[in-house]
């Protein structure tokens, strides 16, 4: 069965969506990612959508779901590389994806993950119960 590959880099999982996803493939990705986060104890997930030519409400919802599920599993999600035309269309469609962190490209996305995950660690060490 067709699958979108998930790469592991230390604490982080990397996904690059390069195909025109049909709905089942998006749902498979959601399943695969959540089980992988739990399996490897990932702290961050980076999803690169720079090659996606459209994001419709279903893909948008899947991305939002992945971010929420990852949060429950104690991992941060960042979606990177959304194209201007895609962003304009999503806004027009009525989806502003408020729960999703975004970054311009893989590099700044990784930087964001490093910063948040490290600062989480620090706060755990110093003042135990803060969030």
């Amino acid at each position: 069965m067709e699958r979108i590959p998930i790469l592991r880099m230390g604490n982080f999982l990397l996904v690059t969506i390069q195909v025109d996803m049909h709905d089942k493939l998006a749902l498979t990705l959601q399943d695969d990612l959540t089980s992988k986060i739990a399996d490897v104890g990932a702290k961050g997930v980076l999803i690169d959508i720079s090659s996606l030519e459209i994001v419709d409400s279903f893909i948008g919802r899947t991305l939002a779901n992945i971010a929420s599920m990852a949060r429950v599993l104690d991992a941060q999600t960042v979606v990177v590389g959304m194209q201007p035309a895609v962003a304009i269309t999503l806004v027009e469609l009525g989806m502003s994806l408020p729960g999703i962190r975004t970054a311009l490209n893989v590099e700044s996305g990784m930087q964001y993950l490093h910063e948040t995950v490290t600062s989480d660690r620090d706060s755990e060490e110093y003042d135990g119960d803060s969030d």
């Binding site: 709905d23 994001v55 419709d56 035309a85 269309t89 469609l93």
Partner: peptide
């Protein structure tokens, strides 16, 4: 234009679904 293309294709995806 690219934006109009994207809007059209996205709408087609929604309505097709």
């Amino acid at each position: 234009s690219l934006v109009d293309q994207t809007k059209l294709v996205t709408a087609a995806s929604e309505l097709g679904r």
